[in-house]
């Protein structure tokens, strides 16, 4: 099952700081509430265990995240994960632009492919749950970025 989501949000800092924050695995991972643990392999890659709760489905998802920066304003993030009899591949593209001296606009596009048990929940549910998870991460991100 493929799900595409996109949107935009603002970060209250300049483009350079925003870019540095979004390409730092430690800072980026700190914005994900359901992240159980993270093992930082190098400056762009980390492995993590995500706890997943959808209705009664409550399991762990092993995921590998790779950040590919394209300075000064583009970032690509790939997440490959599996668990709870399911697999997931997420390609997140971020495009940053200067809004003002102290505000950076971030436009994002997420292409997700989900297979296995979780995909059986249906696109409507998964799209809405994914969207609410992304909004949750963005709201944490806004409080952490300076």
């Amino acid at each position: 099952m493929r799900i595409n989501l996109n949107g935009s949000f603002d970060l209250t800092t300049n483009l350079s700081n925003s870019f540095a924050f979004l390409t730092d695995p430690k800072k980026l991972s700190s914005c994900v509430a359901d992240l159980k643990e993270a093992n930082f392999l190098d400056t762009t890659t980390f492995e993590t265990i995500l706890t997943l709760r959808i209705g009664p489905v409550n399991g762990n998802f092993d995921a590998k995240c790779k950040i590919t920066p394209s300075p000064p304003d583009s970032i690509s993030i790939t997440i490959d994960g599996s668990g709870t009899a399911s697999s997931m591949r997420l390609l997140l593209s971020l495009k940053l632009s200067k809004k003002t001296e102290k505000v950076t606009s971030v436009t994002w596009n997420a292409d997700t492919e989900i297979n296995g048990l979780i995909s059986g929940l249906g696109e409507t549910i998964l799209r809405e749950l994914s969207n609410s998870k992304i909004q949750e991460i963005i709201s944490v991100m806004k409080t952490k970025v300076v």
Partner: peptide
């Protein structure tokens, strides 16, 4: 069409 998962209330 869903098979076993279709018998679950998790499936629409």
């Amino acid at each position: 069409v869903f098979g076993g998962f279709g018998y679950s209330l998790l499936s629409p």
